[in-house]
Structure formats: C-alpha cells, structure tokens
Design a protein around this nucleic acid. Structure first.
Lengths: 244, 244
DNA sequence: CGCCTGGTTGACTATGTTCAACCCTCGTGG
DNA sequence: CCACGAGGGTTGAACATAGTCAACCAGGCG
C-alpha cells in the first residue's frame, strides 16, 4: 500500500506547506487500502451508506441517477483523481450510483477519520473542498448542455470534455487518440438523448470530419472546429488535485 | 454588523466544538460587512474575479450560465444560507452569474482569509465543504430533471423544490403559500424549456388542481400528488448550514 | 395616453423519440 | 466446428413532444 500514489488528493500541497513526516504518518492511517473493481461493476449504489469513501487511482467510471421508472441519467464521468462517495460521508447517504466502465483501482479512506483530516491537516481539507467545488462547477457546465444545447452541440461538447479530461488525468496520453470505453447508450444517458438519435449525431459529426470514433478510440482532428460546434469557449479546466 | 446572523455558515457547529470567544473574534475579522442588492441586479457576473465571497442572509436569486449566442440556463436557485462566489475563491474566476430576484442581503467575506479559516477553524472549513457538496448534489438532481423528465414532470419537480427550499431556509413560512417572485421566463431557463411551453405546462398543472400560482404566490394543495407527477421520491434535503 | 413587461393562447413546424429492422462480433455449448 | 444468442452499433419511417411565430390581454408607470 503506497501513500504517494499519483492522483490522490492528499498528495497535493499548493495552498499550504509541504508534506511532512507527521502528515505522511496521518495519511498512512487515513488510507485504509485499495480497491480493485472490474469493468462494468458498481462501486457505489444509490442509497448506500458505506463507512468508506474513495479516490480514483486509475480507470474511468460513470456517476448516474435514476427515476423510479428506470430512466437513468449519467451525471458525470469519473476520472482518476476524482472523489467517490464524499456525499455519503457528509449526508449519510449516496444520492447517485457509480459504475466502473473500465476496470478501476481506488484508494479507500476511512469516513470516521474525516474530522481528523479537517482538524489536523487543513491543506488536505482544502483539497477536499476544492474537489467538491470542481464537481459542482462541472455539473453546472453539463446543465448548460442539457438545457440549452441542441443534440449535435451536446454531442460535440461531451466528446470534447471526455477528450480533455482523459488527457489531463493521464487516462489518455497527451497526444494521439483517446481510449473510449463508453457505449453509445452511456453517451445517450449522459446527454439526455435517445440511443438512436445519439448514434445519428455521431454519424453526422463523423461525416463532417469532426471526429473519428471507432474501435474504442476517439480522435478529434481539429479541437477548435469541434468546440465551435459545441458553442464552447471555456473548456479549459484544471487537472486533478486529489487526495493521495 | 452582526456576527450571529441566521443562515450564515460560520454559525453552525454540528461537527465540532461550539463557538468560543476566540472563534467569534475570528469571525468578526473574517466577515467584512454586508451587501444589499436590489431586485433584478447582478451579484456576480460570469468571468468575474472578486476579492470577496458571500453568504446569503435573505432574499432569493438565480445562478445562471450562458452560451455565446445568448441562450442562458438557470443552474440553480439561490436561497438564504447559500454560498455565492466560492468558485472565484478556489479557481480564480466565476463560471456563472448570480442575479438577485428579490432584493437580497449578503454577508461579505474576505477571500484572502480563507486559508486562515481552514487553518484555525476546521469546523467552519468543514461547513464550507458541506455547502459545496450540497450544491453538487442538488445540481445532480437538476441534471436528472433536464435529461430525463418530461416538460410536465420538470415543472412539477421545480415547483416542489422551490416550495421545499423556500420553507427550509425561512424564505417562506412553514405553512401557507410561498412567495414566488420568479418570472415564467426564469422557470423556462431553469427547465431548458421555451417560455410558451412552460406556460402551457403551468396551465395544465393548474387545471389539474395540482398547483395554485398567481399574484406572486405559490400554493401546493397536495405535495404528494405533485411529487407523483414529478416522479420524485427523494425530495427531502437538509436545510442550510451556513457560514455565520 | 401609450408603452413596456409579463402572462396567455392557437397554429404551424421541427427536433428528437419510438419502433422495427438488420449488421457484426464474440463467447458458449451442442 | 458450427449454431445460437447476446451485446453493441446502424439505419429508415412514423410519430410526438416541445419550439417558433404571432397575436392579444392586463397591469404599472412615465
């Protein structure tokens, strides 16, 4: 069990002092272990109340919420460095599910020690807030998509976001094509579109030469052109600032 | 300038110790004053980078984001106890605007002292995280609405949320009708619907006896019936846990 | 009085959904 | 070794939900 794993919030120290011996010792106690999840399996289910929360070390997943009648909305794509299960921590119950799309590895933290973190390690506490705020910010961006963008614009925006975050988090290499493990149904659920229409939008973007998407790989020849389709102008975003 | 104002996060202390003399002194320094905004005026504009951030003392507002071509999406309704401008604090720039719908009064905090808060007052730091996480949670709920609910369901859900939060935050009395200062255009922007269609959905709900909405007042005769329309089953949510 | 804002309504249009095929690949078991 | 079924992707045609256009009404204010 390594402490200094990439993409795990507790490792960053921008706002405050550097990691000292004492802080490392705390992190060692705070981190309870690692969790491996195979592709397709759930990590947390809506309504759950686990004594742990997690940070993603590698792999990608989907956060989703459902209506009682089964319609489900993908709320977010989970990338390395993201926090999973903070809600259960703060509110006692998860209001969404998280599924692994690729196989994933996660850090497991003790929920009970959260207060110690806040009391003794303000820089880490700050990181947790930072992650929660970034989450809120990206959800607001998705809301703008769902509420205002047309199907074609949404599709372009989603692909741009996935491409960018994949590279930022190290899920994809900085250049070249991006692994794309999502099904069209996943994209449809993320965009609030039907599967059929999602497919048609993808075809349209392909035929216009804006994207290449095949064999689990995504390529965007001209990001600016695609951004114009998406009516996006502020796609920049910081990379992860994760616990440990 | 009062410190112990209702609905201002720094006042709560669930997770840690009670407010001591020393903490009160800090709060007095942390709080820089109060801000009064008249109905219709902006509080923060997208792209701004103010040296302050705020907490809502009273009144309601709307958080919104825009596409370059003018389409705008209301992302959230801002109620007493909500944090405004935390993003600028953490990321250096706001990615959304906030407008006052009624006249509002806000607490003004110094952005520069944020780190002191984290260092010296972990309980308050925890509250900030709590608020950010609650924000993320409610945005996810809106996403579910925009992505999966029909126009009628969305309308029912929005009215339920406004009703509930109005009462929880003390914007409305616990029983009786709720003040409803929003225009139909605001609702339309919040639901990603056209103004005309929003109006028609409201008429439909009125004719089915599910809501009474007139003269700036909203009444929901049977909340359960309306919740059924909205396909909502987890509308409970904690009230504010605000700074100061 | 006349204009502006906000609300209401009907008729037409269009974006996106549903239904129903069909295709391909891959894993499994007869 | 091939048949079969399941999962994912692709496509066309019919349909419906929601958008657009256009008009009208009521209240408030200069």
């Amino acid at each position: 069990m390594s402490i200094d794993c990439k993409h795990c919030p507790l490792r960053r120290r921008d706002a405050f002092a550097d990691l000292g011996e004492e802080e490392l010792a705390f992190l060692r106690r705070f981190k309870m272990g690692e969790l491996s999840i195979e592709a397709g399996a759930p990590i947390i289910l809506e309504g759950a109340n686990s004594p742990h929360f997690h940070t993603v070390l590698n792999g990608v997943g989907l956060r989703s919420k459902s209506l009682i009648d089964g319609r489900t909305q993908v709320v977010n794509v989970v990338f390395p460095g993201d926090l999973v299960g903070l809600q259960a921590n703060l509110f006692g119950e998860m209001k969404h599910s998280v599924y692994a799309v690729t196989s994933m590895r996660l850090c497991v933290f003790s929920r009970d020690r959260m207060w110690e973190l806040y009391r003794d390690h303000p820089a880490r506490a700050f990181d947790v807030t930072w992650l929660a705020a970034r989450e809120a910010r990206s959800l607001a961006e998705y809301l703008l998509s769902l509420g205002q963008r047309t199907a074609r614009e949404r599709t372009a925006a989603l692909l741009l976001i996935i491409d960018r975050r994949s590279r930022q988090t190290g899920f994809a290499p900085a250049t070249g094509s991006v692994p794309f493990p999502f099904r069209q149904q996943d994209m449809a659920d993320a965009m609030g579109l039907s599967l059929v229409h999602t497919n048609k939008m993808l075809q349209a973007l392909r035929q216009d030469g804006l994207i290449k998407l095949a064999d689990g790989k995504l390529e965007i020849p001209d990001a600016d052109a695609l951004a114009e389709e998406a009516l996006a102008f502020d796609l920049e975003d910081e990379g992860p600032r994760a616990l440990m």
